[in-house]
Each structure stands twice: as structure tokens, then as C-alpha cells.
Simulated assay, not measured.
Amino acid sequence: MWSYEKRLQYPVNIKEPNAKIAQVIMSQYGGPDGELGASMRYISQRYSMPYSEVAAILTDIGTEELAHLEMVSTIVHQLTKNLSMEEIEKSGFANYYVDHTIGIWPMAAGGIPFNSCEFQSKGDAITDLFEDMAADGAIL
């Protein structure tokens, strides 16, 4: 278990709603390179790491990715709260709004919902670490 401080490390205070920006940022929540996949990637891979130090690092990284998920969802929520129906229709946010209103739901900017195929956990330390570096954009 983790100790959880019930506050964002970097407070989010968006004043004006903007559905178009929210749709793009939502991809960082549940898109193919989003925080949900990143957190699941590291936390899932930690169990098959042969070295406890590496498993601990993966746990730390996965936990940090969950914190990113919280920040991104806060941004999306603030960008979509208090939208008028005119803004929803004009921005192209209507399809999302029909199913989720202003709820935060993991999907890519193109409307594709998150699924567990977005990350890999093979059980081989080298394969998994290469997956992690590729997902984070590290030069291999």
C-alpha cells in the first residue's frame, strides 16, 4: 500500500472551459501513450523482475504515473466543467458527451477507448525494460 497525500503536487486551476483542448489532453489520460497504460505497464512488470532493486524502481515509476493520471484527469475535468451545449456541439465533444457527459473516461483523442493492449508485460526483464524505454521515448 501507499501513503496518499490528498492534494496535487502542482495545483491545476483552469478558469475557462475548452472542450477541444480537453479532447487532446484526454489522450494523455487513456490514449496509446497515456498515463493509464504507463502506470499499468510498470506496476505489472515489477513482479517478474529478477532483482528487487529493479522491481522497487518499477513500483516507484508506476506510482508516479498514477499521480500523473490524477493531474491529467483534473485538467480534463476543469476544461469540460460548465461547458454550454453550444460549446459541446461546436467543439466536436458531443459524441463523448452523449456517453460520459463530463465524466473522465480513458480514451485516445481519436475516440478509441483504452484497452490493455496499450502496454506489454512479457515476464522477461530485458524485453520489459526495452518496452519501457520505447514507451518513454528513450533512445535505445
Results as ranks from 00 to 15, higher is better:
11 P>L: 04
76 V>I: 10
38 A>K: 00
42 Y>T: 00
4 Y>A: 13
60 D>M: 09
32 P>E: 12
81 K>Q: 13
116 S>P: 07
48 S>W: 02
100 H>L: 08
38 A>S: 07
130 F>Q: 08
69 L>C: 08
115 N>A: 13
138 A>N: 10
93 F>A: 04
60 D>H: 06
84 S>I: 09
74 T>R: 09
99 D>Q: 15
135 A>G: 07
8 L>F: 10
5 E>R: 08
138 A>R: 12
107 M>T: 06
38 A>D: 00
68 H>Q: 08
64 E>V: 05
9 Q>T: 13
66 L>I: 07
25 I>Q: 01
93 F>Q: 09
122 K>T: 11
7 R>S: 10
68 H>G: 06
126 I>F: 13
33 D>I: 09
8 L>N: 11
26 M>E: 09
35 E>F: 03
111 G>T: 02
122 K>M: 09
94 A>E: 13
53 E>D: 11
35 E>T: 07
34 G>P: 05
77 H>V: 00
24 V>H: 15
75 I>D: 05
110 G>D: 15
67 A>P: 02
107 M>S: 11
136 D>W: 04
31 G>S: 03
66 L>W: 05
13 N>L: 10
59 T>A: 03
15 K>C: 06
24 V>F: 15
26 M>V: 05
101 T>G: 11
80 T>F: 01
133 M>S: 10
98 V>P: 05
97 Y>T: 01
71 M>A: 15
66 L>C: 08
41 R>W: 04
112 I>M: 12
65 E>T: 02
110 G>H: 10
133 M>R: 13
117 C>R: 15
35 E>D: 06
91 S>E: 06
76 V>Y: 01
70 E>A: 14
92 G>H: 10
71 M>S: 12
113 P>Y: 10
27 S>W: 09
15 K>Q: 14
88 I>M: 07
103 G>D: 12
87 E>S: 05
9 Q>P: 08
41 R>E: 01
39 S>E: 04
62 G>Q: 00
95 N>T: 14
117 C>G: 15
99 D>C: 12
74 T>G: 07
61 I>W: 04
16 E>F: 10
46 R>F: 02
100 H>A: 11
13 N>A: 11
87 E>F: 02
15 K>Y: 07
133 M>C: 09
29 Y>E: 01
78 Q>G: 03
135 A>H: 03
98 V>M: 12
134 A>W: 09
131 E>M: 04
80 T>I: 06
44 S>K: 01
97 Y>F: 14
69 L>I: 03
79 L>Q: 02
103 G>K: 14
61 I>E: 00
63 T>K: 08
130 F>R: 09
20 K>V: 12
16 E>W: 04
36 L>Y: 02
100 H>C: 07
121 S>L: 00
122 K>P: 01
58 L>K: 01
29 Y>Q: 06
136 D>G: 12
